[in-house]
Every structure is written in C-alpha cells, then in structure tokens.
Write a protein that binds this DNA or RNA. Sequence first.
DNA 1: AAAGTATGTCAAGCTCACTTTACATTTATC
DNA 2: GATAAATGTAAAGTGAGCTTGACATACTTT
Lengths: 65, 65
Amino acid sequence: MENLVREKRVALGMTQDELSLMLDVSRQTIISLEKGRYNPSITLAFKLAKLFQCTIEEIFIYEEE
Amino acid sequence: MENLVREKRVALGMTQDELSLMLDVSRQTIISLEKGRYNPSITLAFKLAKLFQCTIEEIFIYEEE
DNA sequence: AAAGTATGTCAAGCTCACTTTACATTTATC
DNA sequence: GATAAATGTAAAGTGAGCTTGACATACTTT
C-alpha cells in the first residue's frame, strides 16, 4: 500500500521524531511507514488523518491483492 | 472503535458467511468485528469500504485513546 | 574537522488481528 | 417439534504492526 506520510510530514515542516511524539508511536514506526515496509494499524491511520487534517483515503492508496 | 459493519451487511441482505467469502476472511473475523472485539487491519477496512461503497470513516468511528 | 541533528539499519521481543476447528445456541421453516 | 440456516463461543496457533536499544550514515553548522 502506497502512502503520502513523508510528503505530508515534510509539508508541515516536521521531523520524523516530532511526528512520532505527536502520534505517540516510536520513531522506528514512522521510518518503516515512510519506507513502505508495512501497513499501519487502522488506529495509526486515523491518528495520521486527524493530524494531517484529511481522510485516511487521502494518505493511503489501496491497491487490491 | 465503533463500527457499522453489521448494519451495512444487513442492509445488503448478506449473511456473515457470505460477507466473509467476499472479503476473503474467516467468518470468525466478521463475528468478532461486528461484536467489536477488535479493530480491523487497514486492509480489511479498505475491503469493507469498497464493498459497501463508502469511506472507511463512514464505517468505523474513531474515538481517541 | 568536530559536533549536533535528522535519517537510516538490524535484531529481538511483545501484542493483537486473523485463522482454524469444533461445538453450542438462536432463529426460521416445514 | 424436528431440521436447517445463521449466529455465537472457546481455544490454540501464526504473522505482522509496533517497541526498544544500539549503532551507522548523512547533512548542517560552527
């Protein structure tokens, strides 16, 4: 699943560390997410959507199987 | 996290078994989801949104911590 | 060049989403 | 009331999301 986490984070002028603190996750989680190593939990997706003030669908691009 | 899976499924006249087959998950997953026993993966949330022709946010209601 | 900030890798461990199987209970229909 | 369909519970196992910690590699700035 593709995502625009890095783009949205940079657009807000935040570091990975700052983002991780605001979302209450580890920095590793942000790194791995941005690198596309795994999909977020739906809870983390909701947290990101709230922080970025957009929908989950605007951050994560779902391509079937 | 609250969700409207049961309501949307029933609105389509589907059984839990039929829904599980269409989503390619186990029937147990549907039961547990509807009972609110755990949150779906973001992948399953996307599958449900596609099948129900709505957004993830229209199915799952996020309340913070 | 040295020091600090930001980003990255690696590895081990934990939790929970999801599976499978087997059986119980409810709801409908004959 | 018997039978079947739909929904439910219980329990053990697997895999992925996420954590922690330690260390490596840029990129700045002084």
